[in-house]
Design a protein around this nucleic acid. Structure first.
Lengths: 194, 194
DNA sequence: AAATGATGTTAATCTAGATTAACATTTACT
DNA sequence: AGTAAATGTTAATCTAGATTAACATCATTT
């Protein structure tokens, strides 16, 4: 039961005592999923907040035409939950599915609420995590507004070079909000000479 | 110095004691702006978190072509800050400008950090505020992905009927990410019979 | 009341990206 | 190794929404 990656991550932001670490570790659950398995399905309430130890997941939703839209990817040291559903304990609009075999640490909603009260530093930690997620989300809106598909692809490549290697191209297209055919066109344009 | 609207708002989420309210009130600053004035400008660090008592503001940015893109509107009982800049104390990508004469309550970054430590309930309050903002931001991304301009306009009208009355149509278009000409076309299509 | 600026409309033309469809390549399974 | 499934490419055609431009309406100031 290795919780170290998460504790290391937390201790970059707040400093937990040994007892606090021990208590917090005691409420964590470890879980392995195989490639293709769902961690969360559209319509379910997300009752655990998941931290990825290894592997890769995609968060996506299916629109009214059945089209998949990828909202985000998650790899090592990222969160793989629909925070919206987890926070408000309401049905999720999203699916979270493993793209690779994935190992993660889960914290249930109730355990986290208790932990907030026992360790106010955790409340600070999660406030900061959500602040960051919010800022990233705002930036994504801005990019989608003012950049062309080609520009968004270039930004994606620069921001997540490792992720692009690990996932099929049609998923990158979905994340960028374009078709796989058009991404293919963009790539060949870039390959020639912009 | 009327801080009641903000205190009422806070007490819907956490319960402050009288002393806590008194302390918190003591760090609030009131400020009035005239229509057209800027509360924040692109490139500045947002050093206050602003709660709107009355009036209306827009948050927007100018892209590399000088085009304005409106990210959000704020009215009574909303926040009117670039949370991203405020949180990370880095240069803002956005402007916040008054569309009407606006009265607001400001909390400085330093005062808020001190208040977090004195009153952990405030940390919880702001965690919940940001959680909500994050969820709204995610929903916005989803809508921009999967809805047509007409559908987004209909959702906007349904979600913020009061706001549409108070602002010029070209700002609605900017918020929706379309041109004013196209919004005009959409409205006449709807007026005829969809 | 005229004049100026801000806001809104209509129509013609243009373009980024979607759709369709046929084919190519890579990967995984027996 | 051989086949099926998954992934990627290319090209032709189509469309939502942008751009341009000319005009209409409304509000504010003198």
């Amino acid at each position: 039961m290795n919780s170290q990656p998460l504790l290391t991550y937390i201790n970059k932001i707040v400093t937990l005592t040994e007892e606090e670490e021990a208590y917090f570790s005691s409420i964590l659950k470890h879980r392995k999923y195989l490639k293709g398995q769902y961690i969360l399905q559209q319509g379910d309430v997300s009752n655990t907040n998941c931290f990825i130890i290894s592997g890769c997941v995609k968060m996506f939703y299916a629109d009214h035409l059945g089209q998949e839209h990828i909202i985000m990817f998650g790899v090592e040291n990222w969160w793989a939950s629909d925070l919206g559903s987890f926070i408000s304990q309401t049905a999720s609009d999203f699916n979270v599915q493993c793209i690779e075999d994935t190992e993660l640490i889960q914290i249930t909603y109730n355990d986290l609420q208790t932990a907030y009260s026992k360790i106010p530093k955790l409340e600070r930690f999660f406030r900061k995590i959500i602040e960051k997620a919010y800022v990233a989300s705002q930036k994504r809106i801005v990019r989608n507004f003012s950049l062309s598909a080609k520009e968004r692809y270039i930004v994606f490549k620069a921001s997540y070079p490792e992720i692009e290697q690990r996932i099929p191209q049609y998923m990158v297209a979905s994340y960028l909000g374009i078709t796989k055919e058009f991404l293919s066109k963009i790539k060949s344009q870039i390959a020639v000479g912009k």
